[in-house]
Design a protein around this nucleic acid. Structure first.
Lengths: 358, 358
DNA sequence: ATGAAAGCGCTAACAC
DNA sequence: GTGTTAGCGCTTTCAT
């Protein structure tokens, strides 16, 4: 039970007003009194009660993150970046957990609301169903920054340009000479997935290559989905992405006609793919090129170090927090701001020219 | 700005007392009034202000975790487990970040205190310097559960028995016939490191094998440390564990006399080691056996799937939260409780018998 | 069955 | 310079 201002003031025989003046560095206080107070404050290791302060000030110096249902390697760098950026500006990050479903997003938002966070970062899964909840949040005058562009939402947004990134990955393979390229993604309708697919399709088409629909593999917890299938949206995060990559690639490689390269949803998928190729006795990159996305550490230390895209996580966190806090502090003109950030191609050893056919 | 009880009551022309009775399911309220209130509450999507409630009740239904400085793959499973276990019992987990230094631990504790958390989980790095701060916390009557036994601290503790785990790993290698076994750890004085080393040494000695000091490799950001060297404690977490493993193993393998097996600090170390062996042209497990610790997903999907120890993360989280909340709710007799949990050996393909010498 | 009022710890406006 | 006071939103006790 930490000391309160009331107790300290009583103990020192002064009023709470005077005590507060010392604590808030007001000059309107006798030097001797100030001295006495500061000593006592230090002696008792007084720490202001942030709860009471927040209630009074209607401002808790806290940003709420509508985060992922479970922490994963693929999101912790962004969370760390947000945390440090917030801390840098004197704010604390509170992490809410939502599995990305609309209900959970709503619950998560309510919970953060009730803790009186000063603003929100939408991390989430980027599923369109949550849009109304975010819209309601904005309408109620709260500040929100999303980490992916959500169609139909007029809101501040800082995001990694995934579509562009997948254009670059695909282009990289095409330049190496590949024409038979597969795409290995998950079956959700999240922005993350859609953007990857769009980037891939656009680039293939522009290069005069018609993407083969049976080489666009959508993995679900139940296997590989047929187009339009969106089963088990909610439990997706529980399944291992490595397993997805392994599974999808194994099925792909077991077919009669095989691609010479695979664009994967993530590094996890790609490492699973690498393993599947190994098990199938297919040599990477000689017989099969594989690219990932994220530049996670395991990608760098994989048996065949992965060619992948590095996301500017630090920059993303800083820009998002700056945008949010500038809004909160009223430093920004009205009208939503959108800041796209570019991922960077990291070339390693998992890609090569296609094996010329017999 | 969410609706308050005051507003709703005024709007309905009733007193706050009556409104509150409805919200708290008191039977002492007219059925018609109750109906009217509940409708309005739903219509306005009223959510109680947790901040105000906490201030009044002196209980926020929140547990504070003195967590790691940065989220890493090796700790997120435990954090997820804590989160879900807390949620299960109606509590929210708030994550504090500390790099494990005594100062940061103190700051982190203060910050959580000022948010009036009901209890603490010490995740941290397990460095002895922080002990006094935790002692002070206990002395002030707060509830604390640590996730590692801290010598000299009488406190509730749920922990994975790392020393025992390293005994098992070492025994596994000895049973395979290895005698020349190296230990690859970091140079910190954390409980994590010390327990690993103890388990290794004990087992070697009991098997009549004298551990070679030059094969107990302690990696630091500056290279390999000499005994007693504890430079750069604070920045340790910034360096890649994979890099550590790669580096330490490369140096070890470059020596004239090489071990036939390496016990690693973690799966990250082990994957780095795997890569180093690959680069050095040494075949795993034929020429070199490697064991990790953690059973992270990349370990399972490594080129040579790793033999490692799986930690009971879910159980750890549940037991720790149960212990803490039972304490808070006064359900436990006095006196500290210590619950050791066993890690489980997972045998994969990274170990084999030693190559018989020429 | 309902209303009035006090108080959690802090801040800020106002009086002396 | 210092003391007093009201109030943030919620819970609880005491009157009615």
């Amino acid at each position: 039970m930490p000391a309160t201002q009331h107790e300290i003031a009583k103990h020192l025989g002064i009023s709470r007003g005077t005590l507060y003046r010392v604590l808030s560095n007001s000059p309107l206080v006798n030097a001797a009194t100030r001295e006495r107070v500061l000593n006592e404050v230090k002696r008792l290791n007084y720490a202001p009660n942030a709860i009471a302060r927040g209630l009074k000030m209607r401002c808790t110096h806290t940003v709420g993150v509508v985060g992922p249902a479970a922490l994963k390697l693929s999101n912790i760098d962004k969370l760390n970046a947000l945390h440090f950026a917030a801390r840098e500006r004197g704010y604390t990050m509170v992490l809410g957990y939502s599995d990305g479903s609309a209900d959970e997003d709503a619950r998560c938002i309510r919970e953060l609301q009730s803790r009186m966070v000063d603003g929100f970062i939408a991390f989430g899964r980027g599923l369109p169903l949550s849009t109304p909840h975010y819209q309601a949040l904005i309408d109620s005058g709260k500040h929100l920054v999303t980490l992916y562009p959500l169609p139909g939402l007029e809101v501040d947004c800082v995001f990694v340009h995934t579509r562009e990134a997948y254009r670059n990955l695909t282009t990289h393979l095409i330049k190496l000479g590949h024409r038979d390229i597969a795409l290995l993604i998950d079956a959700s309708a999240s922005q993350y997935t859609l953007n990857r697919e769009e980037g891939f399709r656009e680039t293939m088409t522009e290069a005069g290559l018609k993407p083969r629909e049976d080489w666009i593999v959508r993995v679900t917890p139940d296997g590989i989905s047929t187009p339009g299938d969106e089963r088990r949206e909610k439990s997706l995060w529980k399944i291992s992405s490595y397993q997805y990559g392994f599974w999808g690639t194994s099925l792909l490689l077991a077919r009669r006609e095989r691609p010479t390269a695979i664009v994967c949803y993530s590094d996890e998928f790609a490492i699973g793919a690498l393993r599947a190729a190994d098990v199938a006795g297919i040599e990477v990159p000689r017989e099969l090129s594989i690219v990932g996305y994220d530049d996670q550490e395991p990608a760098r230390f994989a048996h065949v170090p992965l060619t992948t895209m590095r996301q500017p996580d630090k920059e993303l966190g800083e820009k998002a927090i700056d945008l949010l806090l500038d809004r909160i502090e009223g430093k920004l003109p009205s009208g939503p701001v959108t800041i796209p950030l570019a991922a960077k191609l990291v070339v390693r050893e998992s890609c090569g020219p296609p094996l010329s056919r017999a």
